[in-house]
């Protein structure tokens, strides 16, 4: 039996150039995206959203869920990476979930924030240095013990990364981040 795919019927010279323009190659150019998703506040909606990402092979960098001004509606902020094709598919597939009310892709100019707690191992000698970093970054010292200090920081995700990099040399014991939440400008 010969395979009779549609493509086998195309004259060879006409598919010669197709390789360069093949969208699959463009898929490799990933970029970060932020989606703001309004959902009906009902049981199972989170699992519907998450299972969509896992089954279609889209990655999630962060996911934050919280209440909105309307008690029946929650907002999910999802960040991830993908190209235009993936972003378009993610948006369309999310829209197909029945309790999803609205999906909006936010640009880089959106107002973004993240809350981070970082517990750093320290002794009396380097506490001063950590305190300096905290003051410089406008992080709050949330808790202090004999062997550790916990900083609380709220700001855009890049600044969270910066603070984390600054305190890493002291020995980070634990980190908790909420994931990005974002709203459109204006």
């Amino acid at each position: 039996m010969r395979s009779r795919s549609a493509v086998s019927q195309i004259p060879k010279e006409r598919i010669g150039f197709a390789d360069d323009l093949c969208p699959q190659k463009l898929w490799l150019q990933f970029m970060k995206y932020t989606l703001s998703v309004l959902v009906e506040n009902q049981p199972g909606v989170l699992s519907k959203v998450v299972s969509l990402f896992s089954r279609r092979g889209y990655n999630i960098d962060s996911l934050a869920v919280g209440a909105t001004e309307n008690p029946g509606v929650s907002r999910m902020t999802i960040t991830g990476q993908g190209d235009d094709y993936i972003l378009e598919q993610v948006e369309k597939q999310l829209n197909k979930i029945i309790p999803v009310i609205k999906v909006r892709s936010l640009g880089t100019d959106a107002v973004q924030a993240e809350l981070m707690l970082v517990k750093i191992g320290c002794d009396t000698q380097n506490f001063g240095e950590i305190n300096q970093i905290a003051a410089l970054m406008k992080a709050e010292v949330a808790s202090v013990s004999k062997s550790s200090v916990t900083l609380k920081f709220a700001g855009d995700p890049e600044k969270c990364d910066t603070l984390f990099d600054l305190v890493r040399p002291f020995g980070v014991k634990e980190v908790a981040r909420t994931g990005v939440i974002a709203l459109e400008q204006g």
Binding site: S8, A18, C22
Partner: peptide, 12 residues
């Protein structure tokens, strides 16, 4: 199963 290589079809 219907269209094996859609991107090539879409090229032409």
């Amino acid at each position: 199963r219907a269209i094996a290589l859609p991107n090539q079809i879409a090229e032409q």
